[in-house]
Design a protein around this nucleic acid. Sequence first.
DNA 1: TTATATATTAAGCGACTGCTCAACATATGT
DNA 2: ACATATGTTGAGCAGTCGCTTAATATATAA
Lengths: 190, 190
Amino acid sequence: MTKKEEQYELRKYQILDISLTHFIRYGFYGTSTRKIAEEAGISSGLMFHYFPSKLSLYEALVEIGCEKLTIASGENELPLVFFEKQVEWFLAIATRNNFASRMFVFMGLAAINAKGISERAAQMIKAHDVAAMSVPYIEKGQESGVIREGDPLTLSVLFYSSIQGFAETLVERNDLKLPDKEWFLAILKA
Amino acid sequence: MTKKEEQYELRKYQILDISLTHFIRYGFYGTSTRKIAEEAGISSGLMFHYFPSKLSLYEALVEIGCEKLTIASGENELPLVFFEKQVEWFLAIATRNNFASRMFVFMGLAAINAKGISERAAQMIKAHDVAAMSVPYIEKGQESGVIREGDPLTLSVLFYSSIQGFAETLVERNDLKLPDKEWFLAILKA
DNA sequence: TTATATATTAAGCGACTGCTCAACATATGT
DNA sequence: ACATATGTTGAGCAGTCGCTTAATATATAA
């Protein structure tokens, strides 16, 4: 990779990183491309050399979020092992206030108001419904008696909501210790 | 109350109601006072007869949210009874997609990005930290052995995060049944 | 070195924003 | 009926927005 291409990719990531923070703090419409450019130390026009529009910047983040926040669905794992891995994976990225942990908050916000921003982003998120994708594991666990009875989707949504909700709180507060993974699993366990 | 005053209060509530929906969907900066006025069937100027600014409208909603979403802390209740009442109260308002249930989502968003909007709103929310206020109940429950061990604040935050997170998901999806209250309490129970 | 492609800037356009204000309509109190 | 206070409008102001574009600097390839 040439020097030029290297700087290109670096700038692109830098813009995404700054945008992520701004989108969380000020929302899509409150985020100004001028401010992002200023913070990145480039002219406002150059922004549009890297991303054709503010919307494309937002959608790029949603796409990255969909990729990064997907869990590799283990092949035919035991249900409780599957959900335990989910929690462990979350706790691992939550310990560092990095790109991924801010992405968690961003995606939570996007799930609520992407419809008011971009139909494409809304559909990406909808197609990436981790709670719905985990329903089979819930059902399997209920059959074997290790997961409590009740509507599987609702149970799954509650499990991921608790992770999502805690992640949102975590970014705002620094007086929080990390929960034990058993606390999350208690929602599911029979 | 005269006919005039009656209409005044009605309009004021109507504006708040429309604003609530817009703030959730488009965020503070994406919400236009003109659009709110249009949806309320009044001129854009009249908006500012009822609320002196868009910010005051936002802060009014935060203030209402702080009032409505506060639970009457029962005097010396048993810890598990206290948290059970919290869940029951949430489930009661979650069953209707009304003002209160949208307010739930609004306050969740406000907790994240009020700092980027209004210092006053941010402090109102901070002063209304239900999770922190519930810590004594957690500690009491841990002493009597009915609540699991672990950092009390973290435990409390996780409990309320699960409620908050589920409420946020509930407004977006209509294919969800309501969880059993035991599912939430399982997070706390020893 | 020269030619070509890319990086970068800054000015500026049209649209939209929150909000004000002079003007007019309506309702209330006497 | 008249006076006064309140309700209501819509044009308009100053500012910001996303984005374009002509011009220029810089890096790469020949």
